[in-house]
Amino acid sequence: MFQSIVSYGLAVGAVYALIGITYNVMYSASRVFSFTAGMLGMLGGVLGALFIHQWGINAVLGFVAVLACGAALGLVTEILTVRPVLKSVEQHLYVLSTLAFALMIQQVTAIEFGTEAQPFPPLLPLDPNLGAGWLDQKLWLPIVACAVTIGGLEFLYRKTLVGRAFLAIAEDSYAARALGLPETQLRMASFALAGVIGTLAGFTGAQMLLAFFGNQSILNFYGFVPVALGGMGSNRGAVIGGLALGLFQQAANFLVGGIFAAVAVFAVFIVVLLLRPEGLAGAAAARRV
């Protein structure tokens, strides 16, 4: 039982962490909390099953196609739901614009793909006798994807000029514009990157979660929890929060099960935010008095 809790907890937690990173990447470039992260995760599984399982496309080509669709959806999200809001005085309207877009995509997915959960094919042709415990690819694929993503983002932000430009926009967009940085183009690139990360989360986690349009709301909420626990804008915090959430959720499922497990997750979430409103890895914001 302990091995199942840890293996499934880390795998599911890695998916939640990737969705949390998707939230952060979009937020850092625009200061808009886009509610399309769960939509991207849901589409990663649905499009992957469509391309590979139904259309018979090679797994590698299907994977690349899913990430390309994610990047395109990220760009569409920025152009249709974020950019008009940033020009408005009432900038809190992004709550409605991003949520409406995500719900519209969810309904289109339900109509075109169906409302029943579909199986997701194994991505790697491994020996079936190795499909137990930690060697099961559905358990280690999300963890590997999460590790590669966080490592890639650290390299991007710390070692490249484009990454430093992203950090400058996130820190102070007005000063960045004064220095001549192309804010709009950087924001578009950031949303495209978020689209890739979000669909990567859904694609690598689909063997556990299945290809199902209803995963959108689950990933939207459970992907937000790591952001709140780890601190807004902290990708490392999102990883820590996501893995902790996955482990706690699986332990609660084994110990109490059903609705009580969800209640336990909510309870711990509220307690942590009451004790540390800035998140486990966040820093308390200075307030002028």
Score class of each variant (00 low, 15 high):
173 S>L: 03
8 Y>W: 01
285 A>M: 08
94 Y>E: 00
200 L>H: 02
144 V>P: 02
190 S>W: 04
237 G>V: 04
48 G>A: 12
111 I>Y: 11
77 T>H: 06
138 K>C: 01
213 F>W: 15
67 L>K: 01
148 V>W: 06
54 Q>D: 15
228 A>D: 02
199 T>M: 15
263 V>D: 03
143 I>V: 15
275 L>K: 07
29 A>N: 08
96 L>F: 14
38 G>A: 07
19 I>K: 09
220 N>R: 04
49 A>S: 15
128 P>W: 09
163 G>P: 14
58 N>L: 03
76 V>Y: 01
184 T>H: 11
16 Y>F: 13
266 F>T: 01
50 L>D: 09
141 L>Q: 12
17 A>Y: 01
286 A>M: 03
277 P>N: 09
83 R>D: 12
195 G>Y: 04
164 R>Q: 15
146 C>F: 14
53 H>V: 05
51 F>K: 12
117 A>M: 06
218 I>R: 11
140 W>L: 00
196 V>N: 09
62 G>Y: 01
5 I>R: 06
24 N>E: 10
103 L>D: 08
131 G>H: 13
74 G>A: 11
163 G>F: 12
87 K>L: 14
261 A>Q: 10
221 F>A: 10
254 F>H: 08
10 L>K: 04
6 V>Y: 01
111 I>V: 13
12 V>D: 09
277 P>M: 09
108 V>K: 09
21 I>N: 12
105 I>P: 02
125 P>H: 09
189 A>S: 00
233 G>Q: 05
66 V>Y: 02
140 W>D: 04
30 S>R: 06
208 M>F: 02
129 N>Q: 13
265 V>G: 13
209 L>E: 11
239 V>K: 02
196 V>A: 13
224 F>Y: 14
260 F>S: 06
285 A>S: 11
111 I>T: 07
131 G>C: 10
101 F>G: 07
142 P>R: 04
132 A>K: 13
162 V>R: 08
212 F>T: 01
19 I>L: 08
3 Q>A: 15
254 F>L: 01
100 A>I: 11
215 N>S: 07
